[in-house]
Amino acid sequence: MGTLLAVRARGIGKCFDDVVALDGVDLEVTRGRIYGLVGPNGAGKTTLLGLLLGLAVADSGSLEILGVPVGRALAAPDGVAGFVDGPGLYPSLTARQNLTALAALHGEGPRTAGVDDVLHQVGLTDVADDRARGFSLGMRQRLGLAAALLARPRLLVLDEPSNGLDPAGQQHVHGVLTRLAADGTAVVLSSHRMDDLEALCSEVTVLAGGRAVFSGPVGELAAAHGPLDYRLVTSDPPAARRLAAGTPGVRVLDATRPPHETGPPCDTGAPRDPGRLVVRAPVPALDTLVAALVQAGVAVRELTPVVSPLEAAFLALTAGQQQEADR
């Protein structure tokens, strides 16, 4: 079983002077899976990714990467690639020159290293001969991913790879990561975008204050949170409100009221519309409500979570941790 693990961390601790960046973090990443790290700013995500890339060493705990125990050497083990705090690119070189120079570092020519192929994979073929100086953040992210791909990694570590990506770029990146995982590469990525994590990751670890407050499958995290807030748009709002109020387990929230009066999370993020209803309910109660609406001849035009399940769970978990830290 151990050989299937790309990362096995036990009780990892890391301090920077008086600041505790990581405090007893456990992490297991299976090969061929995409693993998400989430947490508020300063939670320790980048520090943990830096340890995986060999940019720092842990003060305590044990870390195995690709089956090899990591010692106190400041260098990434073979088979590990990626970036933290944004990709490292040289603005005076073109995209192709950046990759060719990197390939030459490993003793490969542009053809054998597959420079054109990785440029194609991340959708930068058209700008391959443009200097990186003029690249947008999204293009830089994609070029950084291409640089990591050149190393043919067995563990790919990416810090906020979706920052600045347009939908097309996002599609490229998701495609690349999914293909890599399918080929057996373990991918560890951090992101603030819950839609990314939901779309890509099979498992997540939520970090807060340097500790792992949740580790497990994404579905488990979403389910762990309990009732969610849903936005409900129907053909007959008064009837819908009446039916919702009468359904056991369903609580009608007033979407027109400010968030603090209904308790978080309830901001619909949409213009306040009396025709819209916000209800808080667990999934079984919501099913009952929908059935009642249909039976009453009320058409359901929209029923969506106000906040994604993952985001809701994230906010709940990290808010609790923050309050504990404040105390």
């Binding site: 010692g71 050497a73 260098a75 040289y90 005076s92 020159q97 570092l105 490993h106 003793g107």
Partner: peptide, 24 residues
């Protein structure tokens, strides 16, 4: 690796790193 006799990272020879620096 001096700590446990485990394989450490494969490092880039100085000559290649030198060429990389010259290119930059």
């Amino acid at each position: 690796d001096s700590t446990g006799g485990t394989p450490a990272a494969r490092r880039v020879p100085v000559a290649r790193a030198y060429r990389f620096e010259l290119v930059k």
